[in-house]
Design a binder for these strands. Structure first.
Length: 604
DNA sequence: GTAGGGTTAG
């Protein structure tokens, strides 16, 4: 492996003309004003027959329902002489009343009066309000209850509202409904549906929407293509996404930053830095500056691929060139530094961000606390945890797991147990990571029965165990000479579809050797080699020793030969013990075999 | 857009 390419030439990190993020006007904003225009238009329409007294009554009613919590019981007597079921009056009330909840309550209250039948105008008004307030579920049940036919424009806004609330199937139904009504949905709505699907990573919906668009002969724009590029990235079809982007660029269009960012993120992950660099250059050339999110992807991608030095270099260059890293970027960088165990630099960044007025959030706290635990800075970790709790970030599953794992790593088992109990009191449900930390922490320190207990609890909670749930326990049982129980756990693990760790194989072989059961040890070695798993040097050596001790010289030499072929360097004492054995036995045949093996290993 | 495990190679 050569050095990582220095792809960030000066050109790529341009001094940001406006380091503050670009604010992209969201579609929903436009929808909202569109929705209001509609309502006001409707109101104007029946304003024609409106009399002054109606407006005055409406004001009185509005006043009462806004100020009296239980107005439903008194409204009739409070304002005598009003015909509440007169559409002019109640529509005027709905118009005046900006509070969605009160509007709905008033609507239902009027509905409970005799002689009332909802008219489409008021239904549409209530429905629009609910959509505007993003109350998707309320809007949906209102629609089902009243069974009125909303304005197509309102239904379009409703689609966005449903998408934002994750009610994808319902949103697609509304698309169908508009299609049946012969209404052609605006590109804005198609695009916002696609955007929501991309955000929810529902790629299949993106493709469905796009094929519907084609079917209805709706021509997409550069935003549409941007969403398709992102969809390709989510599906890991980065090359196709990249090709599509290049096609749009050739025609002279430039998609939004997020399409570029997704591609950059994907190429960072696959380590294709030449493409990352090219994309950054393209962005700059097309006057679509890389923003803080773009560089955030780059730094995150580099940290993920353990190119943290490079990430730090870019992070510092960005600061030099006038960018202002935000909370997320600082957190990502501190995380990278903690992984490198560069706690000094991590601390420096921590204080730097605070000095700049950017305060650590629960992510930042967790990253640093975890780094402190992993480097044995126990006192500082505990202090920072206390500080985090004071800020109200202490009661998340992740913060508990960070602490429990950190305490376990540092042998503070009792404290870990206390926190585990505290979780139950706070109603935070432990997950596999919580249990794994405890199983490993206790088992590693020889507390096998506690380890066994936590594994048992994990399974009793119906959680799916992972490789790590069993590994240390099996290793420790083998070390303690309890190979039988280790085998039972092994079987349980395999039955549950969990892949045993390579090191667990090694542990089993060593355990069997210690028990004097070399023959079975050899069987396990055979299984390992057949599965192309690489045993540890120690495993081979222990087998050679035990085999020679059991006078199985032929097997011992076979194992020795195998390990040399796998490129291991054999410890001197192993050779010495073999030579001693051969001298004792005075066997010229094995001596010859041994000599040949040695010759070959020297030759290679 | 960021966090906890394990992963890896050393």
């Amino acid at each position: 492996m050569g050095k990582p390419p220095l792809f960030f030439s000066n050109l790529c990190i341009r001094k940001s003309p406006n380091p503050v993020q670009n604010t992209n006007p969201q579609n929903r904003f436009r929808n909202r004003s569109f929705c209001n225009d509609k309502i006001d238009g409707q109101c104007e329409e029946f304003g024609k027959n409106l009399q002054n007294t109606d407006v005055v009554f409406a004001q009185e009613i509005s006043n009462v329902i806004q100020t009296r919590p239980r107005w439903e019981q008194t409204l009739l007597s409070d304002i005598p002489g009003v015909n509440f079921v007169d559409p002019n009056v109640y529509n005027e009330v709905l118009k005046q009343q900006k509070n969605v909840l009160l509007s709905v309550r008033f609507y239902y209250w009027v509905g409970s009066q005799n002689g009332f039948s909802p008219d489409p105008v008021s239904c549409n008004m209530i429905f629009s309000r609910l959509v505007e307030a993003k109350a998707a579920i309320a809007a949906k049940s209102f629609l089902e209850e009243t069974k009125f036919e909303p304005e197509p424009g309102c239904l379009e806004s409703y689609i966005g509202c449903l998408f934002e609330n994750g009610l994808v199937e319902e949103a697609l139904d509304v698309f169908e409904r508009l299609k049946m009504a012969g209404h052609s949905v605006s590109l804005k709505t198609w695009n916002s549906a696609m955007l929501q699907s991309v955000k929810a990573k529902r790629v299949e919906i993106v493709w469905k929407l796009y094929s519907d668009m084609l079917e209805r002969e709706v021509v997409g724009d550069v935003d549409t293509i941007g969403y398709l590029v992102q969809a390709f990235c989510i599906e890991n079809k980065v090359a196709e996404g990249h090709k599509l982007l290049q096609q749009v660029l050739e025609v002279g269009h430039v998609p939004s930053n997020s399409a570029f960012n997704k591609l950059i993120s994907a190429f960072c992950k696959s380590g294709d830095y030449a493409k990352v660099s090219a994309l950054l250059h393209t962005m700059i050339a097309k006057n679509c500056s890389p923003d803080i999110h773009t560089y955030q992807e780059v730094i995150h991608g580099l940290c993920k691929r353990r190119m943290r030095h490079e990430a730090l270099r870019i992070f510092n260059t960005l600061k030099d060139r006038g960018y202002f890293p935000d909370q997320v970027m600082y957190t990502t960088m501190i995380h990278g530094l903690c992984k490198m165990k560069w706690l000094g630099d991590a601390r420096k960044l921590w204080f730097e961000m605070i000095n700049k007025g950017i305060f650590p959030n629960e992510h930042t706290y967790n990253v640093l606390i975890n780094g402190l635990w992993r480097t044995g800075n126990t006192e500082e970790a505990e202090k920072l945890y206390k500080n985090m709790c004071e800020r109200g970030y202490g009661e998340f599953i992740v913060s508990y797991n960070t602490m429990i794992n950190g305490l376990c790593l540092n042998g503070k088992l009792d404290e870990a147990h206390v926190l585990f109990d505290q979780m139950a009191e706070k109603g935070i449900v432990p997950d596999t990571i919580t249990y794994n930390s405890l199983i490993q922490g206790f088992s590693k320190r020889g507390k096998i029965s506690e380890g066994r207990y936590f594994l048992d609890q994990l399974l009793k909670q119906g959680l799916q165990p992972s490789t790590a749930s069993y590994t240390v326990l099996i290793e420790k049982l083998c070390e303690a000479g309890n190979v039988g129980e280790a085998k039972a756990f092994w079987k349980d693990m395999v039955d549950r579809g969990v892949e045993p760790a390579v090191s667990a194989h090694d542990a089993m072989i060593l355990g069997l050797c210690e028990q004097g059961n070399v023959a079975e040890g050899m069987e396990w070695l055979g299984t390992m080699l057949k599965s192309r798993l690489k045993p540890q040097k120690q495993t081979f050596e222990r087998l050679v020793q035990c085999l020679s001790k059991a006078d199985k010289l032929s097997d011992a030499l076979f194992v020795l030969d195998y390990m040399l072929k796998m490129g291991f360097e054999v410890s001197e004492y192993i050779f010495l013990s073999l030579v001693k054995k051969l001298c004792q036995d005075n066997s010229s045949h094995f001596e010859m075999c041994f000599g040949r093996i040695l010759e070959r290993s020297r030759g290679s």
